Amino acid sequence: MDDQLTTVGVSLARSDERMLTGRNAAGRVWKTGFGGLDPQIGGGMRAGSLLLLAGPQGMGKSTFALQIARNNAASGRPVLYFSYEHDAEDITQKLLALEAGELDESDMVRVNNIRSIFDDLWVSSLEHRMESVPAGPEALARMQQYSDLLFLHRSTGTRTDLTAIQETIATVTEIAGSVPLVVVDYLQKVKSHQQGDEARSTEIVEGLKDLAIDIGAPVLAIAAADKEALRSGRRMRANDLRGSSALAYEADVVMVLNNKFDIVARHHLTYDLNNAERFKDFAVLSVEKNRFGRDGVVLQFRTRFDQGRYESEGAEVKEQLIDERVFVE
């Protein structure tokens, strides 16, 4: 029988087998590790689903995606991160800053500190160099525990197309012994064989969705915004994704990051000037589309970009945001 062809009876038998062996929940859902988000999207990122993460430039989309990748690798599951903008050493430095930032109670860790110890000319091991960073040795040890499960692919827009992505997933699956969570940073840079933004975006998003279903794992892709959506003070929404309408149509979950200060209603700033500085430290994550739960969920997370991370515990936004007519309760 064609391996693409099945029956409902076969599907029922496979589901029953997973439930009887206890593999159902663990095998079908990958947690993001961000408090408040997983329950809203069906318990986490579901097998066969395509999730898009969008937001204005500088809003930490790569940071958010990399943190999800790290959370999964740290839980013992393989992750494959296709990076079109950062090399492996840069990503490694951010991960070390993330780990040290979470561990250090003095709040002295900075990404720049980590980068400087990589660039210094004195001859010494990385382990010894990390001793100069608060919680550095502990951060390195924690990262080493999952380092062989987090695969980094240096991708380029001139050669890394959907076929290359598929072949790399197969390689990682063979090495790791199980299918990885796939992160694509970012979607519009995947090499396409089509002409024009709309046709290119359609080819890539449809291909990534098919890929997620075929491998039985989630694909998390960062999506760029139209230039019009990048104006300061404007709230980016799902319809601002750059390319075709297929982006929002094909995706199972669409999440958009915005800076809270830019999108909160003016009266929250007018009557409490202290809010202005406080809001700048928070990102608002809107779940704009959600096939596994309710959409319209709006959560806030404190940003710690100086440490290459977000604080993982989120809460629903209580303030009124621009482009909304009601308060979020």
Results as ranks from 00 to 15, higher is better:
residue 313 E to H: 10
residue 53 L to H: 04
residue 54 A to S: 12
residue 204 I to V: 15
residue 30 W to T: 14
residue 273 L to G: 10
residue 31 K to T: 10
residue 288 E to C: 12
residue 153 H to I: 08
residue 102 E to Q: 13
residue 170 A to R: 15
residue 102 E to P: 05
residue 123 V to N: 11
residue 81 Y to V: 02
residue 111 V to R: 00
residue 192 S to D: 03
residue 116 S to M: 14
residue 207 G to N: 08
residue 310 Y to Q: 02
residue 247 L to R: 00
residue 202 T to G: 05
residue 316 E to C: 04
residue 302 R to K: 15
residue 314 G to I: 02
residue 164 A to T: 11
residue 136 G to N: 05
residue 284 V to K: 03
residue 8 V to R: 09
residue 299 L to D: 11
residue 54 A to W: 00
residue 301 F to T: 06
residue 290 N to D: 11
residue 126 L to T: 10
residue 163 T to Y: 14
residue 9 G to S: 13
residue 86 H to G: 04
residue 115 R to M: 10
residue 124 S to D: 13
residue 131 E to G: 11
residue 234 R to I: 05
residue 165 I to S: 00
residue 153 H to M: 08
residue 191 K to Q: 11
residue 224 A to P: 07
residue 217 A to H: 01
residue 263 I to S: 11
residue 15 S to A: 14
residue 43 G to W: 04
residue 239 N to M: 14
residue 116 S to E: 11
residue 202 T to L: 04
residue 1 M to T: 14
residue 131 E to V: 05
residue 192 S to R: 08
residue 17 E to H: 10
residue 317 V to K: 07
residue 33 G to T: 05
residue 122 W to V: 13
residue 84 Y to N: 05
residue 272 D to Q: 06
residue 99 E to F: 02
residue 162 L to I: 12
residue 140 L to I: 07
residue 8 V to Q: 08
residue 262 D to W: 03
residue 196 G to P: 04
residue 325 R to H: 13
residue 214 D to W: 13
residue 101 G to M: 07
residue 314 G to Q: 07
residue 55 G to F: 00
residue 2 D to I: 09
residue 76 G to I: 01
residue 212 A to G: 04
residue 117 I to W: 01
residue 78 P to K: 01
residue 296 G to K: 10
residue 264 V to L: 06
residue 135 A to V: 03
residue 283 A to D: 06
residue 167 E to A: 13
residue 93 Q to W: 10
residue 110 R to E: 04
residue 257 L to Q: 07
residue 203 E to M: 04
